[in-house]
Design a protein around this nucleic acid. Structure first.
Lengths: 237, 237
DNA sequence: TAGATTGTTAATCGATTAACAATC
DNA sequence: TAGATTGTTAATCGATTAACAATC
């Protein structure tokens, strides 16, 4: 409850903040910078929750274990959000980062594959926090179709094309088995969906067409951890 | 079943392969290289599944959408795994990558937090594929404690220190709420566990002590996708 | 005003790619 | 042997950090 109140507050703040007249992007932004933006988003949320209203690049750098230089460089790819001698207004900066990341665009998503992972994602507050609305789930199993998960209806995959004709969908979350990934991706693309968040393990490469794909491999992170554990074991012996 | 057979085959192959006398690591390996290793692991598995026994850096580069130069550079951080004029033996290369990543070290993990995400991870074949053995789960909720998830017993969190005294544990998977993250991490560290795979959203920073931490933020990837969707929307208008 | 801190340019560092001699 | 492809060095490219003038 308290948490939801926070969500509301934060989003109200966004509307309250006067938008800068500077453009949202200055030239091409490097992939390295883009990948860091969600982390700023997370830390700024936390600062707002703590009631902090103003922060310097130096202080934020300390909290995030990065250099102040990097923070200033990163933010200046999108505009001058700070003020000399003062630092950054936390609410304003958060609002700008949200703008850049498309929070508040009201993107609508469907989850395809209502297995363990699909269910867990459906129940996760992550989508809500990032302004993404999960409007439906799809599966092929008659045992699951017709059920409701966390307020989201599970439909038969056969109904997917018709559903997409009637409802605008921006993002398809693929949480089905690897073997079904390619076929599902085809259906998603032919339904005109432009964003694919792919958990299937089968990497999807659409070249440089109109479709944006994010391939997620949770296991890669586990392996990085194991690499480091193993490396330390080796060094000791 | 068929899949399990594949697992067995692959791991048998590892044992069959004669180990190189060259060292496992040549000097310091850059973070960029390390982060790419799991992707080689995945693609090599797939090649083995397809029955491919030999591959050149050029061919692998084509499949993985990277440069052949990068592949050769990456692999040569760990040793000369190929043969001039021939390329790489897929099984041998896979075995070497497994060695480097600690697959086959038989690392033992516990999952702390048996909520949606913890359950979904417990049921995921990912751990098994990477040679990590999930031996127990822990939770504070009396509704869950005592149950079995995918063959893994859920214990009361109160029993955690005693359990760790009696069983060697390498990795703690944290899938509990953000608010409980710091306390859980303390318990994990004082139990002598050296690897933390952290899904709580609260980043854990243990400095450069003996503990290895991997902080996972699934939502970051969603935001990167949204950034790109949003950017394209902006460019069109 | 004086002090603080940004925005931005220049310098450094690291990572990727290209090229080719070594060699199977 | 001739052809192919690696391993490795050198060249390029991109990303990070340092420095400082601009300015609030």
């Amino acid at each position: 409850m308290d948490k939801n109140k926070f969500e509301k507050d934060v989003f109200l703040d966004i509307d309250d903040v006067e938008m800068s007249d500077r453009g949202v992007v200055r030239g091409n932004v490097s992939p390295a910078v883009i990948k860091r933006l969600p982390r700023y988003f997370r830390y700024l949320r936390e600062l707002i929750r703590q009631g902090k209203s103003r922060i310097s690049s130096g202080e934020l750098a300390e909290i995030m274990s990065v250099t102040a230089s990097q923070i200033r460089q990163d933010l200046n790819c999108f505009g001058g959000f700070g003020q000399q001698g003062y630092g950054y207004n936390v609410n304003y900066l958060y609002a700008k980062i949200c703008d850049i990341l498309g929070v508040g665009c009201g993107y609508r998503a469907v989850i395809i594959g209502a297995g363990n992972l699909g269910m867990a994602l459906a129940r996760n507050p992550m989508f809500e926090k990032r302004g993404v609305d999960v409007v439906a789930m799809f599966d092929v199993s008659p045992n699951i179709v017709g059920k409701t998960v966390s307020g989201i209806q599970v439909y038969d995959m056969k109904a997917f094309p018709a559903y997409c004709d009637e409802n605008h969908i921006d993002i398809a979350v693929l949480t089905l088995p690897k073997e079904a990934a390619v076929e599902a991706a085809k259906q998603v693309i032919s339904a005109g969906i432009e964003g694919i968040w792919n958990f299937t393990g089968k990497e999807i490469d659409t070249g440089d067409g109109p479709v944006v794909v994010e391939n997620v491999h949770i296991g890669d992170s586990l392996m990085t951890l194991c690499y480091e554990l193993c490396r330390r074991d080796r060094e000791q012996s």
